[in-house]
Design a protein around this nucleic acid. Structure first.
Length: 256
DNA sequence: AAGGATCTCAACCGCTAGCGT
DNA sequence: AACGCTAGCGGTTGAGATCCT
């Protein structure tokens, strides 16, 4: 009954990785690239489960990891992205180059939750806490369900259900589906149909867009320009050329 | 100095989406 | 359509570090 284990547990190491294991894994991936994680441990001469190798590489050994403390910009971006996406750590990590989903998840649970509570906000709903500690106006909110965010129809950004494969470049990745379903034809402000492909940027030259199809860098959509949290360098010129609009960060008392 | 409490974060576990057969 | 396999995700755990009394 049940599925077979992902690996032979009797012959695998568990717990903290040794320096030698790290070196073996790093050397193997540098030589062969990331590939079939299931067969990698044997090929690399590691007594580890493939899952464990993948996690170690993704969260610790990858050369493009930033490490170190989170900046205030990153804090705020995480808070806003969490308000938009909920506990979709991998999607959130895709917007923070050099950060991993595990790192962001840990940081959220250890720092940001407390930070929000100290602001009188419910970390799961992003709404103000009432005197009894409950979240106001959200009696039936399910934590895993992101709150819709009101977005001007012209500022549609493409959101699909899958994160881009590598650390998501915020800029200039052509939107695959053109994001055609988010705005009403009347231009009324409404919640866009969420298309979670966050790797959007200025529309590709060969994909002409109407106003209802324009895309916008999510960082800018969330109110960030410049700074560590947003690596988009094209937005200013793109904004003037293609009609992007920028959104200010939420003011005190505004909620996602 | 000791030891208990709390915090941090790397790693594990179980589940699921997606793909091939 | 059903099944099996894999990669990837999110929740949870636990060891080590740090703080507090």
């Amino acid at each position: 009954m049940g599925r077979s284990p992902c690996c032979e547990k009797e012959h695998t190491n568990k717990g903290a990785w040794t320096k030698e294991e790290d070196q073996r894994l790093t050397a193997y991936i540098r030589a062969n690239g990331e590939g079939c994680w299931r067969s990698l441990p044997r090929s690399a001469g590691l007594l580890r489960c493939g899952k464990s190798c993948r996690l170690r590489w993704m969260n610790y050994l990858r050369p493009d990891l930033k490490r170190g403390n989170f900046t205030d910009d990153e804090d705020e971006l995480i808070i806003r992205l969490h308000g938009l996406l909920g506990n979709k750590w991998s999607l959130i990590a895709g917007q923070l180059p050099g950060r991993t989903d595990n790192e962001i998840k840990n940081y959220w649970n250890t720092h940001i939750k407390r930070k929000l509570l100290s602001r009188g906000m419910d970390p799961s709903t992003h709404r103000p806490l009432t005197a009894d500690g409950a979240s106001a106006n959200a009696p039936s909110y399910r934590p895993a369900q992101p709150q819709p965010i009101a977005v001007p129809a012209r500022a549609l950004f493409a959101l699909t259900t899958k994160a881009p494969p590598s650390p998501a470049p915020v800029q200039s990745s052509p939107s695959s589906d053109g994001g055609s379903s988010g705005a009403t034809s009347t231009g009324e402000p409404r919640c866009p149909d969420l298309n979670l492909d966050l790797s959007v940027g200025p529309p590709a030259a060969d994909t002409p867009t109407s106003h209802s199809q324009q895309t916008v860098c999510l960082c800018h959509h969330l109110g960030f320009r410049g700074g560590d949290a947003c690596s988009c360098r094209q937005a200013d010129s793109a904004a003037s050329q293609s009609g992007f609009r920028f959104f200010r960060p939420l003011e005190e008392g505004q909620y996602i």
